[in-house]
Design a protein around this nucleic acid. Structure first.
Lengths: 220, 220
DNA sequence: TAATGTATAATTGTATACAATTATACATTA
DNA sequence: TAATGTATAATTGTATACAATTATACATTA
């Protein structure tokens, strides 16, 4: 997100721990000791402390004064809640994007949809996932609201990492691309109401698909 | 929010800076020098650094590596955007609260409404503002979603501080209390659709009132 | 045995030292 | 004068020292 995180040690520690927590590499209530983590990553306690303080603000870690930092993690219910919240906010985002989008951004979205259709028939699913992420990021920017953009980027990152395992079926991938196409058309037609509704439903559909995947996985 | 912020130096520095930024005590792009702030608050650089890293995550400060931390602040448009986002999320919150609220929480809300009506005729407006905050906080808890609660608490804190000057008129206060009453009734009646709609409109009304206040203030 | 007390180890909280980077003031040059 | 170079100061980045707090192991007591 912010440049500083790429270059400073504390930023790198932050990202590493965030990824590990969201990917489920820690158990709930695991203790994150400053010295231990520092040794694992080859840094001193200072950058680790700074990272832990940031993770606390994100709600991924709970800090008890003088006692330590403990993993909070993100439950299945949390993920579901985020999808409901996201569906509302992506709707609002599509509405605002309709009002503020630039011709350059529309062109970007069109080329993403095109590329998505091209890659959807190939085996490589990471490409399509990447393009999906880009599609939404551009919409966030087009909303012209740094608050909403910040919020949705955060949520997007969360569900992406927390559910990295949920590979999409080819059927769902194609439907998803068709939904993107419909949202883009509504935005181009300046139909804010429709854009909002379609974006809203799009996220709910993504969530429903996750549920189905979960049930399939549980059945095994 | 979290206990640790009350007791540690870095937590206190974090709160002080957050309050100052939200209250507009800094100008946009003001530089926050670690040593200077440390001297002002009588602490070393370490707690200041930790606080600045947290504020960066909240979006109130922008850190440029090796150069410094600069105030981002929160504009009038940001506040307006937050109200739109909040109106959607408070609606969702009221819906979920309808499904999950406990009898104790209903009783708390009822006593808050009662107290609000009692104090609304008095001169002391801080009481009513406090009760308003409590009403919403209980709804957040009743939603049974730590994600939504966390989100709404943050937004609530933001607009409260950023607009602390906007004193309410007695007319708006009474309408606001009536709206709380209606939301509570819908929740008690288990009418989730109505609760959502009323909570939604309630926040939009609060915002509209702020706009009116702004116009009045600008006219002077 | 179970409960309590106590010394020691482990850990966090904070300040500070040193290195690395950037900003500033001033000199030099065309 | 305007542009560039350079020494110095200011500032951030990181590691570490020391103090304060908490956890642990073990002894003592009823």
């Amino acid at each position: 997100m912010t440049e500083y995180h790429e270059y400073s040690l504390s930023g790198r520690v932050f990202h590493k721990l965030q990824d590990d927590i969201l990917k489920g590499n820690y158990k709930e209530q695991d203790e994150l000791k400053e010295l231990t983590i520092g040794e694992e990553l080859g840094v001193s306690r200072t950058p680790v402390r700074e990272a832990l303080r940031q993770l606390e603000l994100e709600g991924l870690v709970k800090i008890i004064p003088n006692r330590g930092a403990f993993v909070t993690g993100i439950s299945d219910k949390d993920v579901a809640d985020i999808y409901y919240i996201r569906s509302l906010l992506e709707g609002l985002c599509a509405r605002w994007a309709t009002e503020h989008i630039t011709t350059e951004q529309i062109e970007e979205l069109e080329s993403i949809v095109l590329l998505s259709e091209f890659h959807s028939n190939k085996a490589d699913s990471t490409q399509v996932v990447d393009l999906d992420g880009k599609f939404h990021e551009i919409l966030y920017q087009a909303s012209n609201s740094r608050i909403l953009e910040h919020q949705l980027s955060d949520f997007h990152k969360y569900v992406k990492l927390a559910r990295a395992t949920s590979v999409k079926t080819k059927e769902r991938t194609n439907k998803s691309i068709a939904e993107h196409k419909a949202i883009l058309k509504a935005i181009k037609d300046k139909d804010a109401d429709l854009a909002e509704q379609l974006a809203n439903e799009h996220i709910l559909n993504v969530m429903k698909n996750l549920h189905k995947m979960g049930e399939i996985l549980e059945d095994k």
